[in-house]
């Protein structure tokens, strides 16, 4: 079983993300981490592998800056086997559609049975790349998966819905977008971190994938950021202290007063 997990390095999510003067995410200012939702996709892949007794090879697929391998190593430390990074100076400022085209081309160069992706990324929040890739590659697309099961020829997911879940099944190869209900991402062990140092990360440029720089990069972006403003600062918070029963009463009264409950 060959599983590909889409993984994006994003700026540290502790609230320090900033846009640069060019209104693009300032990736140099803040250390990069794995996009949190992608960690769930990787966790889902690792659990599928474990359910098969280890019979699966997991490849991380990333489009990102040249420093991306540093972040990808963390995914390899969690247990993925290898990485493929598409990096090219022309890709700065790429839009969602460009990203999907590049990743679809990269997928085309790989052999795979299943692609897993997170719901969206914490820096872009577009949430369309996985769907666009599935469409470009002609893959069955199973979204909002709360649970994923795998046979040798098919994938079955529980797609979360407001009423419960829908049971979807598709033949392999397929694209599955997972939610955070697949299970908490594991914390890498030191052995995993050490093993990750010697795992292979292959780097490809646009030319390697046979793509023209003017067709997919920042130059061909279909969306543009016009303006950005910091959000209004949060209103003052009220902290309730005291013994739990009394504190709970105070909280209930506060909420009831505002007709929240």
């Amino acid at each position: 079983m060959r599983i590909v997990v889409l993984l994006k390095p994003v700026p540290d999510t502790t609230g320090q993300e900033r846009l640069g003067p060019d209104l693009r995410v300032d990736r140099a200012a803040v250390p990069a981490v794995i996009n949190p939702n992608d960690e769930y996709a990787l966790e889902a892949a690792l659990r599928l592998m474990e359910a098969r007794g280890g019979d699966a090879a997991i490849t991380l697929l990333t489009m990102g800056p040249p420093a991306a391998p540093e972040t990808m190593r963390k995914g390899l430390a969690m247990g993925a086997h290898r990485g493929l990074l598409v990096t090219d100076p022309a890709l700065g400022g790429a839009c969602s559609l460009s990203t999907a085209r590049v990743l679809a081309a990269a997928l085309g160069s790989l052999e795979f049975d299943l692609v897993l992706a997170g719901v969206d990324t914490s820096d872009g929040r577009g949430g369309v790349v996985a769907a666009a890739i599935a469409s470009l590659c002609g893959l069955p697309y199973l979204s909002y998966a709360g649970q994923v099961e795998l046979t040798d020829t098919a994938v079955r997911v529980r797609r979360l819905s407001p009423r419960g879940y829908d049971l979807l099944e598709a033949p392999l190869p397929a694209m599955v977008v997972v939610t955070q209900t697949v299970g908490e991402p594991r914390y890498p062990s030191l052995k995993g971190i050490m093993a990750a140092r010697s795992k292979e990360i292959v780097t490809r440029s646009l030319a390697d994938l046979g793509l023209a720089a003017d067709g997919v990069g920042g130059a061909a972006a279909t969306t543009r950021v016009l303006e950005s403003r910091p959000p209004a600062s949060r209103a003052a918070t009220r902290v309730v202290r005291g013994p739990a029963p009394e504190a709970a009463e105070a909280v209930v009264a506060f909420l009831a007063e505002r007709r929240v409950i």
Binding site: D12, T14, G15, E184, R186, S189, L190, K191, G192
Partner: peptide
Amino acid sequence: VLEDSRFPSELTGAFRSMEQAGNPWGLP
């Protein structure tokens, strides 16, 4: 922790915050 990654689940957040944000609160 280092070999089995076996620890109370609350610690995952503290470990990640220390490693990524440099403080266990996870604040910028």
